[in-house]
Structures are given as C-alpha cells and as structure tokens.
Design a protein around this nucleic acid. Structure first.
Lengths: 340, 340
DNA sequence: CTGAAAGCGCTTACAG
DNA sequence: CTGAAAGCGCTTACAG
C-alpha cells in the first residue's frame, strides 16, 4: 500500500507537507504543491481513511436507518406499506452526497417495540444519521437524543429533533379539493390507522376541504384502516356492502387506493366512469395502476435531499436551533378521476 | 471518549489484555476476562473502528453498488426499469449481515459509459463489493478485476467473476409452458432489448417451450422493446394494430406486462377473459396490478442473501475458484391467466 | 513556506 | 496467562 510517506519520499518533501497538500492547505508553495500532486498521481496514492479518522474523529460516513416492522414480512407484498420510500429517499440523499466525501451506510431497524439503537449508532460508525419513516416510538427518539448524535427524521415530524416531512394536512386537503372541484359530492375517505397522528392530520385536511365547499356535501364516509392493498380492498368492500355508493374515493395511500380499485374491478365498477379514485404518495404503483392513479406527490426524493442538507448543517453546527422542515406536495393528475 | 486504556486502568490490567478480551482470545484467564468485561460494560466502552482498522486493514464494511442509467431519470416512473431490485437485494444482503460486524455502504453508479470505478472502491472504503443489476460494460468488470477487490455480481452472469443470477432461460421457459398448459396456442412474446444477452436467453426459453408442445402452435409473435411500462404499451399497440390477436401475452418484465395491460384496457379488452397475460420479475407492481399479475418470481431477495454469502466467502479465501450461482425461479399464479 | 515530533486508539509479536 | 513496546498512516501544533 502506498502511504503518505512514499509520496513524501518521491517528491522530496516531508510527510507534513504532503498532508498539507492533500488537505488543500494554501500554506504550500504552488511549485511544491504541484510536485506533490504529481507524485500522488504517479504512485496512485489514496489516503487511508482509518488513519485520518483516528486523528480527526470524522468518519465521513452518514447512516441511513430504515424503519421497518418487527414482523419482517415480504418486502413488497400486497400487504406491505414500505413501498418505495426507502429507495426514493436514498436517491435524494445520494444525489446530495454526490460531490462530498461522505459515504452512506444503511441499516434496516425496527424501532417501535425496542429501546435499543441501530448498531450503526451503537458502534459509532457514523457522523450523523437519517431516520427514514414513521415507525418509531418516543422512547427511540429519547435514546437518540441522549446519544447526542446528529440526526434528522425523514417522513415524520417529532418535536425537539430535526425533521423533514410532507405537509400531510395540506396534501389531503388539496386532494379532496380536487375531487370537489370535479363535481364529486359523495366522497368516501379511506384513512390510515386512527391512532396514528398522521391519520388525524389527514382527516382534518379532508374535513377542511369539505367545509369550504359552499354547496352542501351530500354524503361522506370515513373509514380507517392500514396502509396496505389488502386493507384498502377490505375497506372498499365494507363501504360497498354497507350500501353506500360514493362517487369518489379518497385514499390515504396508493396502496389503499389500489386495493380499493381491485374490489371495484371485481364488482365491475369502472374507474373513472362509474367512480373516481384518488391516491396519496405517488409511489411506483400509482404510476403503473390501470387506469393510472391520480395521486398526491409527497416529494420523497426531495425529502431525502432536504434531510441531507439538514444533517450536514447539523454536523457543522451541532447547537443550531432545531428545524422542522415541511416539504411541498403536489397534485399528480392521471386517469382515475373524472368530472361529474 | 472511553478507550482501551481507560478500561485497562479500571480493571487493573494492561491494554494488551483488554485487547485480547475484546477479540475473544482464550489466552485470558476467565477471572481476568470477567473483570475486564465488567469494566467495559461499566464504562460503556465501544472499540474505535478506525484504530482497529489501521492495524488490521479490515474495515468491516461491504459496498453495494447499484447500477443505474446515466440518464438520471425519475426513479420510479412508468419509464423506469430499476423498480424494486435495489430494495429487494438490499433486504437480502441486510438479513444475511445482521449477525456479523459488517456494515453496508451503498452507492448509485452508472457503469455503462464510463470506465472509472465507484468512489466506494476508488477510495478504498470497503472490504468487498456487490454489483447490483446488469447495467455494466465489459470494461467496467475489467477495472474491477484489476483492482483485485472481492466482488460479486447480483443479477447478471459474467465470465471470470463471482455472480448470482436467476436462471433466465428456465424462468421464461416455465412461464411459456404455463401458458401452453392453459391451452394458449397463439402467444405473443414481448421481449427485452434484442442486443442484450439476457433477452437472447429469454427468447431461447420461450422457443424451447413452444417446441416441446406436441400440438402445433398456431401463431406466435416476438417483439423486442425496453423493460418499461411505456415500452410495453407501445409494443402491445404495435401487435394490436398489426392485426394480430394473440390469446396470451408473455412479457419479459412486469413493467412491460403492465404497459401492455394498459393498452388492452384502453381497447376494452378484458384480462384474463379475452386475453391472458404473464409477467416476469415479481416486482411490487405485479402484486398491485388489476387483475393481479401472474408472473415469475426471480427471487431477488434470495439473490441478495446468496450474493452476501459468496462475498463473505470470497473475502475469506480470495483465491478460491470463481463461482457462478444460479438462483431458483418460481411461478407466481395470480389472476391474469385463464384456461382457454 | 516546510520539517520534526507527538499522538490518535488500537493489535500483535515478543518476553517473561 | 499478562505486560511493555512497536507500529499502523495520518494530522496538527510548533519551530524555524
């Protein structure tokens, strides 16, 4: 292995000088610098990260903790809710890290039922960490804070810690509004699990949109379920069998939406001819649904980018004020909603 | 930060002894060992990876290079082919790494048009590397080999280097066979890009199945296209407009299948009543398609697991013989194929 | 502007 | 079974 010492010898300077050159110090005469750079290239020298870290304490590695369910079910079955959050956020972070020296270390971790920390953090392998997804408990966050490791949450807000999350309330509001604008007055809202804070925000967004409509809404139905295809299917079935005939469905996730579409398909109800449907998340399945699903884009990739900027900032200035960032959402109009 | 020295002081032994304990040497008296372990727990000592690496040269980090298209398009649009390969392989590798000390460093990299290596490798940050996906050139593999870094390919075979890949030929053969068994005799095969080796294997698998049928196949159509939804849509359109009316479609990817389904949907052709369709890959979109898509499971997660075992083995014994592993594929029967 | 020296926190022969 | 010592490849004051 070629070391700083080999470079020093080759360019006839001391190790110190080589080090200064590597670290782009301007305290080196241009002539010397060039000579050293020459040797570096000639010898194919690559700095040893471990040696550097031992001195500087900076690892140049960020951690990405992807929160998953304890029950390690098949990653993308019809029952799954993880969908493409991981990949999208990863892409966002990656693109932001492209021109830095940081590497990205990833770990799947279940943070709901346990108070321990990901080994990434426990073993001190990262300078800072992204927590992806909402599947964490308060205890987990407390642990994280005690560790005093720079961290930012991506996907869910939590007080007292940096976070980036979509404006859930506004997103659902926008979706509902769109349905209303298209003449739908009998809307069924298939929401997420009632006990989750996010579901509450979604409900409020939905209600707000309805209230702003001057014409009275004829009917509405709100049902709570999981964010999965199967759950959406069951919820739709329940609505249908209860005799309700909404003219539009607002789903709290693309998974739910597609599940509902499946049920309607089986009942020979045509979308959007007989009923309009609107998803939430802009995941891969919304784009590939038939008909293509109109949905809300919650900018997961952008969330990753933003999270990355925030973490880098936090590492630089550990005591800066906590920031809770909200990411823009937008309507993605495709083929599942029709004017009534 | 608490170091080995603090532990040594606390348990009244030398640093050497503490080091031996940490590394599970059996050359330490049980009594001493216990005392040291006690101190470690008490002080919350965590070994400094950098210092260890500086000595041992092992980083305990594996790299995962995810091959992407140069044209950095939206990660999961209807035009995308990456789909869930990344996440599935990652899951497989992760589960295999769970009980080891290895961390997993990831990087997106475009390896088709350039001969440089991922920075993961260039900067010497990993002990070994997974190359995920088939989007690499021969030059890339050469570079990799010159580096002499332990590496295994996941998703595509290449001579002279460890690899895990599905048995493409057999998978498509099985799919075609299934269509045949269901009485279909007029099958259109929408294959991947003609110049890709994989597409060639797929074609052979398809042809083989047809040849084995004693009854003569009435008609068949083979068209080549990209592995995307839009490409599948266009290919189906082309077939349809040419006047062909196959009774079954065999698609070389779930993306293609769903694209074709979209076109058929627009033509008011019912699946599977009027036409059967079969995908390939068992990606998230096949499970969520309406009707749910019958497809071939190419065991991406298992591929990740296998790749992981292979890489670990390769790191242990660098000179062992090259192995090219083939992973089992299986038919996933859902709702898009009907007996004729 | 450049060099000598100390030290980061470990591991690993080598003595005893 | 345990300790003293060297050394891994860097960075960083400190001299000059």
């Amino acid at each position: 292995m070629v070391t700083i010492w080999d470079v020093a010898k080759d360019s006839k300077v001391s190790k110190s000088t080589v080090s200064l050159v590597i670290n782009n110090s301007d305290a080196v005469k241009m002539e010397t610098k060039l000579r050293v750079l020459e040797s570096i290239k000639k010898l194919g020298y690559v700095p040893n990260m471990a040696a550097r870290e031992l001195q500087t304490k900076v690892k140049n590695i960020l951690g990405m903790v992807f929160l998953v369910n304890e029950s390690a079910q098949k990653s993308h079955s019809f029952h799954s809710i993880t969908e493409t959050l991981f990949y999208d956020t990863f892409s966002g972070i990656s693109s932001q890290l492209k021109d830095t020296d940081y590497g990205l270390l990833s770990e799947r971790f279940s943070a709901v039922n346990q108070t321990s920390l990901p080994s990434l953090i426990k073993n001190n392998r990262v300078d800072g960490v992204f927590i992806i997804g909402g599947l964490f408990s308060e205890a987990f966050i407390k642990q994280l804070q005690e560790r005093k490791i720079p961290a930012v949450l991506a996907g869910r807000y939590f007080p007292g810690i940096d976070s980036v999350a979509p404006d859930v309330h506004h997103a659902i509001y926008t979706g509902a509004k769109y349905l209303l604008e298209n003449g739908h007055r009998n809307i069924a809202f298939i929401n997420g699990p009632e006990q989750m804070q996010v579901a509450q925000q979604k409900l409020e967004g939905f209600e707000k949109a309805l209230q702003e409509t001057s014409e009275t809404v004829m009917d509405k139905a709100v049902v709570h379920t999981d964010y999965t295809g199967t759950a959406g299917y069951q919820a739709m079935k329940q609505i249908w069998e209860s005799g309700k005939r909404p003219d539009a469905i607002l789903a709290a996730s693309d998974g739910i939406a597609v599940g509902a579409m499946r049920y309607l398909y089986e009942q020979n109800v045509r979308i959007p001819d007989d009923i309009s449907i609107m998803g939430y998340e802009q995941s891969i399945i919304s784009e590939h649904a038939i008909p293509a699903l109109t949905t809300m884009n919650i900018s997961k990739e952008q969330m990753g980018e933003e999270a990355c900027k925030m973490l880098l900032r936090r590492i630089e200035t550990p005591n800066a004020e906590i920031v809770n960032h909200t990411v823009e959402t937008s309507l993605v109009i495709r083929d599942s909603v029709r004017k009534r």
